[in-house]
Design a protein around this nucleic acid. Structure first.
Lengths: 126, 126
DNA sequence: CAATTATGTACGCGGAACGAGAACATTATT
DNA sequence: AATAATGTTCTCGTTCCGCGTACATAATTG
């Protein structure tokens, strides 16, 4: 039927754990795991929060649309200054000395930042 | 909270009755009426069926997006990519997982990228 | 290698809330 | 005026959501 098969792909692309995602969404690990496995179905608020977290659209998670980054998410829409979250690679082009950065380089930077934050906050785990 | 205020507008634009819409959706009149009034929240299947019936997106019904026919704009949005050079950061703010990056972190990243490019182009450099 | 911790999976339970139908009020049609 | 159509609100039975928990496996640490 209507499976949310794309959730796991969205999570694994970012190398996030179930625990980390469910913490970000403010729900139990088993709850989010139920969404990925198809055992449970998210509420409208839950699926909206997931679309925000993954910087994609509800329609994409539902499989109604095939472009992950088709819509702007709320945080980007409401900010007057342009705020770019690096997880949303489709929305921005970054360059250094006029030379564009590849997605791979941006991913490395994200990993670098996360590793740095881990070291500074050893108590927290994702 | 998250009201589906746009449902009634979508229906009235078409001069459709609650009975007609609920028949098309295969549910009771009171069920769909509950969605419009905010008394009940639709399931994922129900809101998907509504998006299909009204020829719009789930994100539009949820208020995550302001254009009813959001699908057509996919190619347009990619042209609107914001290009940011990391050497002049005054214009924009960068974040990872919604957490802002400090200027120091970005400077470290610039240094990292430059060093990486040095190593990848040993013949040209110097 | 052993021990501990992180990660993914499955299940049972209490309770929230969904969906249908009925009853009623209001408006439109004849 | 009578009838039908439309919109609103309520109760009831049932579904199923979300959490806690337990367990299996993989990863990390000493």
């Amino acid at each position: 039927m209507m499976n949310l098969n794309r959730l796991m792909a969205l999570r694994k692309e970012r190398n996030w754990s179930l625990q980390y995602v469910s913490d970000q969404l403010g729900m139990a690990k088993s709850t989010y795991a139920g969404y990925e496995s198809g055992y449970r179905r998210p509420s409208l608020e839950a699926i909206t929060a997931m679309a925000d977290l993954f910087h994609t659209s509800v329609d994409y998670i539902l499989g109604r649309v095939d472009e992950p980054g088709a819509y702007a998410d709320q945080s980007n829409r409401q900010d007057e200054k342009t705020t770019v979250d690096l997880n949303n690679l489709e929305s921005c082009m970054l360059s250094v000395d006029g030379q564009a950065l590849s997605e791979e380089e941006i991913r490395q930077f994200i990993a670098f930042i996360k590793a740095k934050r881990e070291l500074e906050q050893p108590a927290r785990s994702k």
